[in-house]
Design a protein around this nucleic acid. Structure first.
Lengths: 195, 195
DNA sequence: GTCTATATGGTGATAGAC
DNA sequence: GTCTATCACCATATAGAC
């Protein structure tokens, strides 16, 4: 039986999140008003509050959703292979993630300071869990002698920063294909840890 | 002869810039009000306009000043040595700069999107000039066979991102000394380019 | 050079009609 | 679920007294 009371909530909700993600990534959370988001969605500002209790919750929800998706996608990857194979897997996974959802990756490290303390703590935990995945790979490879990594913690930060940097310049229409980019970065990552 | 009309401009001016730099770095340009800056300086908001025509000019001036300082400091470095020595020099220089002026480095890549178009173009040019310094080093090393770098442009972005990442975690009171950090990163950078 | 006071407009969020 | 209208507040920037 068809709904008699018309509702767009099942489509407007995602549109609100999409618009917020895009605008936050482009202009920054603090610089974007609820009226701008509403205009992008095609509703009045008041209608947004059917989908989020406030602006801060909207930001948090986007970041939390992204981190959950990222961790779930990594968990879903096959976990076979030695440390070198796992490092290649992580490298390619992180670059593909960066390229697939650039706005989400971007706001996830640009808008942390605009989270209220409790929200910040949640996202920082998830980020830490993600970085731990790489750190464990480097640590296990260092123990078996597969890698030459004197300080796995620092090496983790260095590799993550290098890979996330793809975000700042990669364009789909660019000179290099995604697999070429992956190959170049994997070559550098592998060599940087003496693998 | 002493000034009869009291003036604090020679001290208030720098204090305005210092406060703005610190607050922009911590909370972001869009999230910081002129009233907050004034409060930090210890004057009323109106007084700030003796030192900047508007908020945007204040941001631009901070970014421009930082990039000019950075380029001038690099120019002032001795330019002897082969590509490998020059790469080590750049690596250590960039890390030291990142650690010495963390707020300026931070806003220089976080607040670009808050610059108006003409201001953005100026800063982007200066950033490009800085990145070119590294790219030329990698390119010359690749030509002589000192480095194994198939794509100097990408390698430049990768190395810069890795080094700038120090900004996100380094603390003066931390576990590692600056020269230890430099050493670890230089080891990774050298290996990553096959040097 | 700094102050107080103010012009002008945008902000997040809510109330109540439909 | 969306609209219009509105509240209370904060924003940047300026004017004019001292």
């Amino acid at each position: 039986m068809a709904r008699t009371q018309g509702s767009h909530s099942d489509i407007t909700g995602p549109k609100v999140r999409d618009a917020a993600l895009r605008l936050f990534a482009r202009h920054g959370y603090a610089a974007v008003s609820m009226r701008q988001i509403a205009k992008e969605v095609g509703v009045q500002a008041g209608a947004l509050y059917n989908y989020t209790p406030d602006k801060q919750s909207l930001l948090f929800s986007l970041l939390k959703g992204h981190m959950d998706d990222l961790l779930a996608a990594w968990e879903a990857e096959p976990k076979a292979g030695d440390a070198l194979a796992r490092l290649e897997q992580f490298t390619r996974f992180h670059i593909r993630s960066t390229v697939k959802t650039p706005e989400a990756i971007f706001i996830s490290y640009m808008e942390l300071r605009n989270l209220e303390p409790e929200n910040f703590a949640v996202i920082e935990d998830l980020r830490g869990a993600y970085e731990d995945q790489l750190e464990q790979i480097l640590r296990s490879g260092a123990e078996t002698g597969a890698f030459d990594v004197p300080d796995p913690k620092i090496a983790t930060m260095a590799v993550i920063a290098m890979l996330t940097g793809v975000n700042t310049w990669y364009r789909h229409e660019g000179r290099l294909s995604l697999s070429e980019v992956e190959g170049i970065y994997w070559d550098m990552v592998r060599k940087s840890v003496g693998g």
